[in-house]
């Protein structure tokens, strides 16, 4: 299973208005690693995730997923192997019912009806949303939508999970459940977020972005204790490391 590495080399992305969102980004994720991607607004987190899934075209550099280099020819295969969790679950849940949404990916993979049913059932059970299968997605609570959005990704059995602000707009209980869920996964995970406490709990390794470049890459606990680095990158230490009164 060691072929599930994800390597980004010298990635440059510029938007049509000339903004350089990524400027020579490089990092490598090994199989099964959980890595936090943090940085201030505009640091390039979301663009990095989009580039990994071939949703924005880099000007330069390469993305390599387990030996397959991202290109026009391989983008379909790369997307099959990457599970992308979007920031707003409403963007991810577009089908009439939860079942249809979770089945959307597996059906596009050409699986048989029985296989799709099995995938949907397993994915929904994995996130504790089996009872929501027949509900319309737009009637779910924020936490339920997030769980179902994760199920839509899991049902495709991806090698790598990339998540954009997974804890955004979740209440404390929903966030706690999400952390438990993320910790239970064995996939290679890349979590882009401002929620540094979540990163501290879920990801042993953290990459700090600033101005479209990797500013630091290393052990999460060590990085979050480096106040100078965090301040330079527009961040603050996680609340649990700030000596908050209990």
């Amino acid at each position: 299973m060691s072929h599930h590495f994800l390597e980004v080399r010298d990635l440059w992305v510029a938007y049509p208005d000339g903004t350089e969102a990524l400027r020579g980004l490089s990092f490598r994720l090994e199989h099964g690693e959980a890595v936090g991607l943090v940085g201030a607004n505009g640091a390039g987190k979301s663009t990095t995730l989009l580039a990994l899934a071939g949703l924005v075209i880099p000007c330069r550099g390469s993305v390599n997923l387990g030996g397959t280099v991202l290109s026009k020819q391989t983008v379909g295969e790369i997307r099959r192997r990457i599970g992308f969790l979007f920031q707003d679950p409403d963007d991810q849940l577009f089908m009439p019912t939860v079942f249809d949404d979770v089945a959307f990916g597996p059906l596009n993979q050409g699986l048989t009806a029985e296989e799709v049913e099995e995938r949907v059932r397993t994915a929904l059970e994995q996130v504790g949303a089996g009872h929501l299968a027949e509900r319309p997605a737009h009637r779910l609570s924020g936490g339920e939508k997030r769980s179902v959005a994760i199920a839509t990704v899991l049902s495709m059995m991806p090698d790598v999970l990339i998540m954009d602000e997974p804890s955004a707009s979740l209440d404390p209980r929903g966030r706690r459940l999400l952390i438990g869920l993320l910790k239970s996964f064995t996939h290679t995970r890349l979590v882009a977020t401002h929620d540094l406490d979540l990163v501290l709990e879920v990801c042993p390794r953290t990459i700090v972005l600033s101005g479209g470049r990797v500013e630091a890459d290393g052990e999460t606990a060590r990085i979050f204790q480096d106040r100078t680095l965090l301040e330079r990158c527009g961040l603050e230490p996680p609340l649990c490391l700030q000596g908050m009164p209990r």
């Binding site: 899934a53 997307r79 990457i82 992308f84 979007f86 963007d91 577009f94 596009n108 993979q109």
Partner: peptide
Amino acid sequence: RIYRSMLVRGFD
């Protein structure tokens, strides 16, 4: 954004 989320799930 919706189109992107469809693409990453194999929409053809």
